[in-house]
Design a protein around this nucleic acid. Structure first.
Length: 439
RNA sequence: GUGCCCAUAGCUUAGUGGUAAAGCUCCAGUCUGUGGAUCUGGCUACGAGAGUUCGAUCCUCUCUGGGCACC
């Protein structure tokens, strides 16, 4: 008995031979998810600035929370006692948790550097060989700032101050809240995710930077695969496996052979559970930090290898052009902080591209944020009002912009699904991006 | 009324006989498994007039405005 069920209802290959895109339905104990679907991010068991009722109204189907953040605050035991993530947060639809693996990256290798989910500019170009992530004075400066302004920092003791350090058995995290040290092994991450109790959870992985050398990617990938098996084993040693689905997370950087190997190994990975039954992953997450131009090929490589009948989640991706690419390549789920992060800082999505709603030119614009949008914010408020809220630093500013952005991206992916069902995905993509990307 | 002090960007302040710097604000950009953060650019100023000087935001005088003290 599986924790979730995935049914494909239509494949793009019916119209476009060779295409990997598909529309489907994931069934969970807390409801169905029509895929492809945009998963909303509620890192600390809340989509920032949004109540569950508002979230529902944006069209959201799923909320994804974060293991590392909830473990630190308020603690997974409390969430377990409260009845799990859904009960605790008031979101009664399907839920997911990220494993904390990404924090090993963002608080570790990427900490204090200009590195994130995406690498800017040329990114990994020319990095296939060597592009050592040296400790620069800039790094030391950033760490000094985050470490509370200590003076006697140099490049050497900088490494020790990073809030996350990876070793063979797991990751040592330093709390971003009080600096205390915590160790996550794969089993620990799963145990915490069991307490949090989301419908779908992720294996503990190491997200690597595309600037890492081949030798490091090789070493890291082997480790991520080893951890994946430990996660699978531990997951199925508990009866949580009956109600929580476990997704394996692929890595491999920008190397085709590593990416494909990751897909093959995780797809084939099996353990024997307490009842002597063979068990594998219920779905797959595609992880990594990308140079923008590498993302598409990485997704194509792995989706041509992954089993068709399991859902695929492209972790952390959310720009419209990236969503089109990924849906077309057969991804079913996405999560991204973009709608709420941008929303909080005043950037809103429109059919003509992103705009900063606080800009002077919108101060007396009494039209909606995005003409024709059916979200709560657009139906009830003007650009001028939202711009005013941002200038006045009112809390409602971020809330309204977040509601709009969430609805925009959720609706966009919903429309992609409908286009797949209608057999006109290519046309929809062309029409949308024609407006959205034009300058 | 008399004496003293002060006047530099929207605000608070640096500074110099060779036309000016910073913080905040403002304007704009950035944001992809969270970061209400950060970072990157940009606009804007020597109160007015006269004098000394090759040259004055700086020195002198007058005026205007503000502050303090005394009567």
């Amino acid at each position: 008995m599986n924790a979730i069920k995935f049914d494909i209802v239509k494949k793009m290959s019916d119209e476009a031979p060779g295409s990997l895109g598909r529309a489907g339905v994931i069934s969970t104990a807390h409801g169905n998810i029509q895929t492809p679907a945009f998963v909303t991010v509620g890192t600390k068991a809340t989509v920032k600035g949004i109540t569950p009722e508002m979230l529902k109204e944006t069209g959201a189907q799923v909320m994804l929370a974060n293991t590392y953040h909830l473990y630190l605050q308020p603690g997974d035991e409390l969430i377990h006692k409260a009845g799990g993530l859904g009960r605790f947060s008031g979101w009664n639809g399907p839920t997911m948790t990220d494993s904390g693996g990404f924090q090993a990256f963002s608080l570790g290798a990427a900490f204090g550097k200009d590195l994130g989910k995406l690498v800017k500019g040329e990114g990994g170009k020319g990095a296939a060989g060597e592009m050592p992530l040296s400790e620069t004075t800039e790094t030391a400066k950033a760490m000094k700032a985050k470490a509370g302004g200590r003076d006697s920092l140099n490049a050497q003791d900088g490494a020790a101050l990073k809030p996350a350090q990876v070793d063979e058995n797991g990751v040592m995290f330093r709390s971003v809240i009080d600096g205390s040290a915590h160790y996550f092994s794969p089993e620990k991450s799963i145990a915490i995710q069991h307490n949090i109790g989301a419908d779908m959870i992720f294996a503990f992985d190491e997200c690597t930077s595309p600037t890492e050398s081949l030798s490091y990617q090789r070493q890291s990938l082997d480790r991520t695969h080893r951890w994946a098996k430990q996660c699978l084993q531990y997951h199925h040693s508990k009866d949580n496996a009956e109600r929580q689905a476990l997704f394996g997370v692929l890595q491999g950087g920008r190397f085709e052979d590593l990416r494909k190997e990751s897909a093959e190994k995780l797809a084939a990975m099996r353990i024997t559970d307490r009842n002597g039954v063979e068990q594998g992953f219920d779905g797959f997450g595609i992880g990594g930090s990308f140079a923008k131009e590498d993302m598409s090929s990485a997704v194509a490589w792995v989706n041509s290898v992954l089993p068709e009948e399991k859902p695929r989640h492209l972790l952390g991706i959310g720009e419209p052009e990236d969503l089109f690419m990924a849906v077309e390549q057969g991804c079913d789920l996405f999560d991204c902080v973009l709608p709420t992060r941008n929303g909080r800082t005043g950037t809103v999505f429109t059919k003509y591209g992103k705009v900063n709603i606080g800009n002077t030119k919108y101060r007396d614009d009494l039209g909606p944020i995005d003409e024709g949008c059916e979200c709560y914010a657009c139906k009830n408020y003007s650009r001028a009002y939202v711009a005013h809220l941002f200038h006045a630093k009112e809390m409602l500013a971020g809330t309204l912009a977040s509601i709009h952005n969430l609805h925009f991206l959720i609706k966009l992916v919903d429309n992609m699904r409908q286009a797949i069902l209608d057999g006109n995905f290519a046309e929809y993509k062309k029409n949308f991006l024609g407006l959205y990307l034009k300058d």
